[in-house]
Design a protein around this nucleic acid. Sequence first.
DNA 1: GCCTAATGGTTTAGAGTCCAGACCCTATAC
DNA 2: GTATAGGGTCTGGACTCTAAACCATTAGGC
Lengths: 259, 259
Amino acid sequence: MSVETASGADPDTLDEPTTVGQWAAPIVSRRVADDVVDRLVTAIALGVYVTTQQLPTERELASMLGVSRTSVREALKQLTQTGYLEVRHGRNGGYFVLADWGPTSAEHVRRHLVPNWEEFEQIFDARTLVEPMIARTAALRCTDEDAARISTALQDYLDAPDHDASRRADSSLHQAIAQATHNPILVNLSVELRTRISLNLGAEPYTDEVRRQAIRQHQELVSAVIDGREDEASHIAAKHFTLSETLIRALVERAEHEE
Amino acid sequence: MSVETASGADPDTLDEPTTVGQWAAPIVSRRVADDVVDRLVTAIALGVYVTTQQLPTERELASMLGVSRTSVREALKQLTQTGYLEVRHGRNGGYFVLADWGPTSAEHVRRHLVPNWEEFEQIFDARTLVEPMIARTAALRCTDEDAARISTALQDYLDAPDHDASRRADSSLHQAIAQATHNPILVNLSVELRTRISLNLGAEPYTDEVRRQAIRQHQELVSAVIDGREDEASHIAAKHFTLSETLIRALVERAEHEE
DNA sequence: GCCTAATGGTTTAGAGTCCAGACCCTATAC
DNA sequence: GTATAGGGTCTGGACTCTAAACCATTAGGC
């Protein structure tokens, strides 16, 4: 990294100089290992790799990501130390996603969720605004091909045998809907918001009641999108993402009372 | 997502692989100079520095951005070679923004606009969807303080003596509106979209008629936002950004016919 | 039980990037 | 004409990333 010298002189710039003030913010040179960490966390957050599942080997990851094994190892070391992964030696060894990195414990909530609470509020807020817009647009532009893909994703979601599969299918379903907008920028936006939530949260709270409600909402949402009922799609999406927000809030409340 | 036992055959990865496929895309290590280029282009695009205006000196830029002068020089070299900047030697020398890097010429349109046309369509589309949502949210959350800032920005816009000042004020105005959402994520989203447009486009086409129309729309938009008329704000924003899209399209048409 | 293979763990040399700082060159202001 | 404010150039050193070889550990096959 670079020197931290005098560049200070950064008086409070909270008024409106964001346009002028932010463009010259210090450039931090990102290390490759940090990028690898981000990719892996994203993959786990999106459900590409789930609990107890084995990641590709170091050499495979290095090849997949086009970086050296050294950098991959650096990233995996970070994730292992943070408690996301577990490593096993010897033949059939490798890195495994640890089971308990969700908001399962009040401990996790206090240590990870609460400190980032402000950012969290912002992400939720943005998602509640963006996703209905995406759902509306998807409903307006959904082709037969899109509809087929969305239906398949919904079916996968309904068939999901456990929580992990459910998370993964949920991710795919929302992705399929976003893709029906036929605009990669919106798809990325949606992915980014979902990732940032999972990234802070691990998995969302999960009970039978929640699942029933989520299933109904997903069915309604898919139906509205496929049939091109844009107002309804937008409205259901808003309700859907408000639900998940409510759950998190309840979780945090509970954790704080336990304290 | 078809990881295991997907019901439908899902052999190829071209169908919906974005979730699974994209996380492992090769990591490209960005060089510091490239980041500097981005920052400078953004600053110019947002109107922080305008035609014939002098940029800070190399040493100042290096200090502002927290990078070495070597990297700044590398970036400035690129921008000079590309034709964005002009360099003058000796005392009172420095780097100056060149005048003619807008869509002033059919040449520019063909060389820069047309090759990126697909991305351009996507950006416009996203903006037409996102900005109304932002305007609506701003209208719903606008405080007195926000209203004051927005009014000031509007006045600056009305007072702008020339095209450059107008561009800068336009940028500030939209920024002020976005900030009334009180959500940094949305503010960044708006900045990013506007930047990416200016970045491809330089300045937008500009005639007296266009300016009159833009002024009216800005006044209506500000009034709707400040008074909390969210539906109207959303609607005007949509109209406003559609106007700029229409102008660009007309420009490209013309350039292609000249060919 | 022994060997093999697959995996993580370690080391090293070299190329590339970035930085700080010193110094040179040029044109303007005075 | 000289001082000065800028860009232009060079160098040594620190850090990062890579490639490739080699070590250590364990499961599976015989």
